[in-house]
């Protein structure tokens, strides 16, 4: 018995719909490409937009006039109030900007002051150490002077070679 012909090319609904879609898309894209870039269509579309925009403006103006005659706030009035609020916010933000800049400057000054204080403290510490060192040397010199003064009795009464406070190589 011969094989049924449909076995060789089984029906696939998914593939068929895909193929159909792709063909449709290609044809439609090609057509739309021509339409959407045609100068005539663009001109007509522009004119249409222009008419819509002008009509909208006329409508707004008409509405505003009507509301104005009824002593009711118009859209323009509300917009103006909202714009004032926005401008006020902008002014506040400008004040905030200035304050933040002042804060930056103060922070900078504080950092510089702190740095200067640290440097001053370090210098003071250094000076204190230096003074202590000098004091120690003086003390050592005094000790040596005392021993020299005590020596004349042994050396036959010669005066001391150096006096306290006189510049010397050891200083």
């Amino acid at each position: 018995m011969p094989q049924a012909p449909h076995d060789a090319a089984a029906f696939d609904f998914g593939k068929l719909s895909n193929d159909m879609y792709q063909q449709w898309e290609q044809a439609m894209t090609a057509w739309w490409d021509q339409v959407l870039e045609s100068p005539e269509v663009l001109r007509a579309s522009g004119q249409n937009l222009s008419v819509m925009a002008r009509a909208r403006r006329k409508y707004e103006e008409g509405m505003d006039q009507g509301l104005h005659q009824l002593h009711l706030p118009t859209r323009e009035d509300l917009t103006r109030v909202a714009r004032i609020a926005t401008l006020l916010e902008e002014r506040l933000l400008q004040v905030e900007d200035t304050l933040l800049q002042v804060k930056d400057q103060l922070d900078g000054m504080e950092r510089a002051t702190l740095q200067a204080r640290v440097e001053a403290a370090e210098t003071r510490l250094e000076l204190r150490e230096r003074l202590a060192e000098l004091q120690a040397r003086i003390d050592r010199l005094e000790g040596r002077g005392a021993s020299v003064e005590a020596a004349p009795a042994e050396d036959g009464g010669k005066p001391a070679a150096r006096k306290r406070g006189a510049p010397g190589k050891e200083a």
């Binding site: 959407l36 870039e37 100068p39 663009l42 001109r43 579309s45 522009g46 004119q47 937009l49 222009s50 819509m52 925009a53 002008r54 009509a55 909208r56 403006r57």
Partner: peptide, 21 residues
């Protein structure tokens, strides 16, 4: 691409749109 083709000063009514809407 297409956007720059659409944004042609001769056909795109920019001022009308902003003034109107």
């Amino acid at each position: 691409g297409r956007l720059s083709a659409w944004a042609d000063p001769d056909t795109f009514p920019l001022d009308d749109i902003v003034d109107g809407f």
